[in-house]
Design a protein around this nucleic acid. Structure first.
Length: 605
RNA sequence: UGCCCGAUGGUGUAAUGGUAGCACAAACGACUCUGACUCGUUUUGUCUAGGUUCGACUCCUAGUCGGGCAGCCA
């Protein structure tokens, strides 16, 4: 829990970020263009959220947070064949996790089951749906009386707007087949041509559209199209489709419909219905903006219109964010699931022990622009360490143990040492760790033939056992095969805390645990999932999955870790940040994940 | 080869006509009972060519390079 706290996060005192979108919002606020700033995060429930989505979530909720506004979580669920409630649930959970303690007071949910209300404004029929009070959101969610927004809740008013467009002569029912539609559309450098059905009468269009809804026609037989310009240089203005026929049940709307609006038609209207002021999306929708504006502008709507702004999505080196490819990793068993700790999904990050605040910190550092960039993974790793360092409890653990016998300590004797829980604290607390005759040290911390500048233990050399004392290696015991099985050392107990020679310096300090006062645990060490910086740009990203992305070891942990729970964030000294695995750990069989290693300027050389 | 968008050190980003700054990375050094953290120093940049201007990363024109758009996906 402590790791989720914002108290020591940069966010607490940091100034609000600025970028070109926030500048626009600020201008709109200054001009009092809207009574309140309302943004939205509109995922399609057809996959798990990943770090790339997190950038969008942070932007949209950040804008709301900085302007006393609200940000709606809205499912853009207009294509029932691809969507599923499993994703609705995971997305809702992940969004709430990401913004917890930061922007949950801005989260816009609606009353359960609510759909847009009809009103008359200036003699015009209007539909509207607003969010419940964020202040009471938690109790309402718990009570089951609030839920996210769904575009599918707007099918009725969206249908009414389509009828209105037909009446205005701005939409028509087309009988062209999908193949013909494609052929008629032309290509980027060649204009399209008008459908023979383009100039049907309003009455005929209305009749046909009503019958489409009534289910009289099979899939693909007809469609509703906007009547714009088949010769437009912008393909999305060449009479784009508004509705298609799909005789299929919807995961949220049930069996009510057999015609479903397409993204372009549903999205801008959903924004309007919810009173969205700033509709922020990624760059690929830039060419759709004229259509977004055309639809809203063609309906003579009485309330202020939302506006669309586009930014470049996040790319991180050594990672992939494509839903299709992520799904492949899951289905082809490169990972154990969507929440595998190596996955760039939010559920994977959470299981890995990455604090939500670190992801928010990443979003703040990469900024928001229209330049399609690739951010080095090191920026993300740095953000994780920055968030974990001040909150993680220091503990001693040995991943790959080698036995050390301290020959001048009697068997059964226990020397208690004070170990600091977190040196970053203003007033650090301590705990007791046991020093006994036999201890484990890290395999890497002993070298029979040390490389130059090796600070750790070597034959005849000295090293400090952290929080304990300096030891000297007297003898290296090997088995018949020549492997080191035991190091026989003497402890200089005068260098213990409180001892006369505490201040004696040796170059190296290493971690250790008592062999008689420790617990075994399965520890999972993660490395990058891919071996190349841009796996998405290769011929087949699966060929570049890192075979060493997961290594499992049986580690020795200091005894105090015996009761560790998922809530604890630990730094195993000199090794990295760890937490208990939420799925596979049990009280009698601890399983821990390494979130990330400590920066290691020695190993690099 | 139609339309739209973009280009600042290795990477990401700031400077909104007036000293090119910050972060990450890298290198070196200091400190250190974590080769971590912290601190200090250093290396490296405005895509090109014209134009406007006292002055251009910024405005204009052309070019180069990169990205997006031809789902009844979002």
């Amino acid at each position: 829990m402590s790791a989720e706290s914002n108290e020591r996060s940069a966010e607490a005192g940091a100034p609000d970020p600025t970028d070109f979108i926030r500048d626009i919002v600020a201008q709109d606020v200054a001009a009092q263009r809207y009574p309140q700033i309302v943004t939205r995060f509109p995922p399609e429930p057809n996959g798990y959220l990943h770090i790339g989505h997190a950038k969008s979530i942070c932007l949209n909720f950040g804008i709301a947070r900085e302007n006393q506004g609200v940000c709606h979580l809205r499912f853009d669920d207009t294509n029932p064949v691809k969507e599923d409630v499993e994703y609705v649930d995971s997305i809702t959970r992940d969004v709430r996790w990401l913004i917890a303690g930061w922007a949950d007071h801005c989260l816009g949910f609606k009353a359960k089951g609510a759909s847009p209300v009809t009103a008359t404004i200036d003699g015009k029929t209007d539909f509207r749906l607003t969010s419940v009070s964020p202040a009471s959101l938690d109790t309402q969610v718990t009570a089951g009386t609030a839920e996210p927004f769904f575009a599918s809740d707007y099918f009725e008013p969206i249908y009414a707007y389509a009828v209105e467009l037909i009446k205005r002569g701005k939409a028509y029912v087309d009988d062209l087949t999908p193949e013909e539609t494609e052929a008629y559309r032309g290509s980027p450098d060649k204009p399209g041509k008008d459908s023979p059905w383009r100039n049907r009468s309003s009455a005929e269009n209305l009749d046909l559209f009503t019958r489409m809804r009534a289910g009289e026609f099979p899939n693909g037989a007809r469609s509703l199209r906007a009547k714009i310009d088949m010769a437009s240089p912008n393909i999305w203005l060449r009479d784009p489709l508004l509705y298609r026929i799909r005789h299929v049940a919807h995961h949220h709307a049930g069996n009510k419909w057999c015609i479903y609006p397409l993204y372009d038609f549903a999205h801008c209207l959903s924004d309007y219905l919810e009173g969205i002021t700033h509709s922020v999306c990624t760059l690929e929708f830039e060419v759709h903006r004229p259509l977004y504006d055309w639809i809203l502008g063609s309906l003579d709507l009485p309330r202020p219109l939302p506006h669309q702004y586009e930014f470049a999505k996040l790319n991180l080196s050594y990672l992939i964010f494509s839903k299709r490819r992520l799904l492949q990793l899951v289905e082809e068993r490169f990972v154990t699931g969507w929440d595998d700790a190596r996955m760039p999904t939010l559920s994977g990050a959470r299981r890995r022990g990455i604090p939500a605040s670190a992801i928010r910190r990443l979003a703040a550092t990469v900024g928001v622009t229209k330049y399609d960039s690739v951010t080095e993974i090191a920026v993300y790793e740095h953000a994780i360490r920055e968030e974990l360092n001040p909150v993680a409890l220091r503990r001693l653990a040995v991943l790959r143990p080698v036995k050390v016998v301290l020959t001048n300590i009697a068997a059964g004797e226990v020397l208690e040492c004070d170990a600091t829980n977190n040196p970053q604290d203003e007033n650090p607390t301590t705990r007791k760790v046991a020093l006994t005759r036999e201890v484990w040290i890290e395999n890497e911390d002993f070298a029979e033939v040390p490389p130059p500048k090796y600070f750790r233990l070597k034959p005849g050399g000295e090293v400090r056992l952290k929080y304990a004392c300096i030891i000297k290696c007297d003898e290296v015991v090997k088995d018949a095969a020549g492997h080191v099985v035991e190091l026989r050392c003497t402890a200089d107990l005068s260098t213990r805390t409180g001892g006369p020679n505490v201040d004696r310096k040796v170059k190296g300090t290493i971690h250790w645990v008592s062999a008689s006062h420790c617990v075994d645990a399965e520890v999972r060490l993660y490395d990058r999932l891919f071996t190349v910086a841009e796996p998405g740009a290769t011929d087949d990203f699966r060929k570049y999955v890192n075979p060493q992305s997961l290594e499992t070891v049986t580690a020795k942990l200091e005894a105090s870790l015996a009761g560790a729970t998922v809530d604890g964030r630990y730094q195993f000294e000199r090794l990295g940040y760890f937490l208990v695995d939420a799925k596979d750990s049990a009280p009698d069989k601890l399983v821990l994940n390494r979130t990330i290693s400590l920066k290691d300027t020695w190993a690099k050389k």
